[in-house]
């Protein structure tokens, strides 16, 4: 029988600095591997449309005639599948996430 088993831990924590990252005040450094959002270096892109075909959520739209590449961040599941299949390696996974929006379009 042990009463107040956590009392030691909680009193110890009181003297310590909080474990909080203090996010909005202190900016968060993401690791290199973090999957945040997809970015395109349009200079190298040949608009082959492979990423569009492989995207599991159909978030990417490629228009070969107009040389247009768009991604809907509200559909992207950041699986990085498109980055893997890109033949020209011009898609990048950035480690910052896409920001929230107040309207969908």
């Amino acid at each position: 029988m042990a009463f107040l088993k956590l009392a030691g831990t909680v009193t110890k924590r009181m003297g310590m600095k909080s474990a909080c990252y203090m996010y909005p005040v202190v900016a968060r450094e993401f690791t290199k591997t973090t999957r945040g959002h997809v970015e395109l270096d349009s200079a190298d892109c040949i608009y082959c449309g492979l990423c569009q075909r492989k995207c599991p959520t159909k978030a990417i739209e490629v228009n070969r005639q107009e040389k247009n590449w768009t991604i809907q961040p509200l559909r992207c599941i950041v699986c990085s599948g498109c980055v893997d299949v890109c033949p020209k390696k011009c898609l990048r996974m950035e480690n910052t996430y896409s920001s929230s929006v107040t309207s969908k379009f």
């Binding site: 909680v10 009193t11 909080s18 909080c20």
Partner: peptide, 11 residues
């Protein structure tokens, strides 16, 4: 605040 500190939070 004290509760938060005890739980390792900022509060």
């Amino acid at each position: 605040i004290i509760t938060a500190r005890m739980q390792g939070r900022y509060g």
